[in-house]
């Protein structure tokens, strides 16, 4: 039978997803750490089932400009992963990788954008690999794509894709701490309802 809607999920299932998320994001933090040469941690990640408008507000508001890197997941799970980097994070990354910073997103050159996509790609693939190893579910992430725009419009991409039967979306992710400083970098996993059911089933807590 399984869930018909995200909002039907129970607290045991949320805890299990948080645990998976924790392992996925800590792997991603380790990759980021070796890339930056700084200590990167991610406090206990959050699993939230939120109404559309609440989800956008929770993630920092509709009009906040971010670089968003998206990857579509296929295989035994369908979903999307979205990494959101604000300018502060981009500068931290560029400074470590290329020894330069920018004042505005518009100053980003093609090489710098590619570097940002690559960081997003590393975070997303590390997360997906951890998830896949842990559950034995085959997941193939697509080539990531970048957009620099109002983040409200980027967060609605998974909402529109899976919004047909629910006004809620599941977000699994967290905010990174680099050298104990909170950086507004968010990593989100948004599966469709069917894939969420499959994931819960593989974890032995499906219905």
């Amino acid at each position: 039978m399984g869930l018909n809607k995200f909002e039907e999920i129970n607290s045991i299932q949320i805890d299990a997803l948080r645990e998976i998320g924790s392992i996925g994001t800590s792997h991603a933090a380790t990759s980021l750490s070796s890339l930056l040469g700084s200590e990167v941690r991610i406090p206990l990640p959050e699993v939230k089932i939120l109404e559309f408008n609440k989800a956008v507000e929770e993630l920092g508001g509709f009009e906040t400009i971010s670089a968003g890197i998206i990857s579509l997941l296929s295989g035994q799970i369908n979903g999307m992963m979205l990494a959101l980097f604000e300018l502060e994070v981009i500068n931290l990354l560029l400074d470590h990788m290329m020894g330069k910073t920018v004042k505005d997103y518009s100053e980003l050159t093609e090489i710098e954008s590619s570097a940002i996509i690559e960081v997003g790609n590393i975070l997303i693939s590390t997360f997906v690999n951890a998830l896949s190893n842990l559950t034995g579910v085959k997941i193939t992430p697509s080539v990531p794509q970048i957009a620099i725009d109002m983040q409200g419009a980027m967060i609605t991409v998974p909402m529109a894709a899976y919004g047909n039967q629910s006004d809620y979306i599941m977000l699994l992710g967290g905010t990174f701490l680099v050298d104990n400083k909170e950086i507004p970098c968010k990593l989100l996993l948004a599966p469709d309802v069917k894939s969420l059911n499959y994931l819960l089933y593989r974890l032995g807590i499906g219905e």
């Binding site: 559309f52 408008n53 509709f62 725009d149 109002m150 419009a153 609605t156």
Partner: peptide, 24 residues
Amino acid sequence: IGIADMKLARTQGTLVTYALGSCI
């Protein structure tokens, strides 16, 4: 006006909706 939302006004007032992506 939020996502999946609607508001009406009469005579005067501004209606605003933020960050339309694929939404309309």
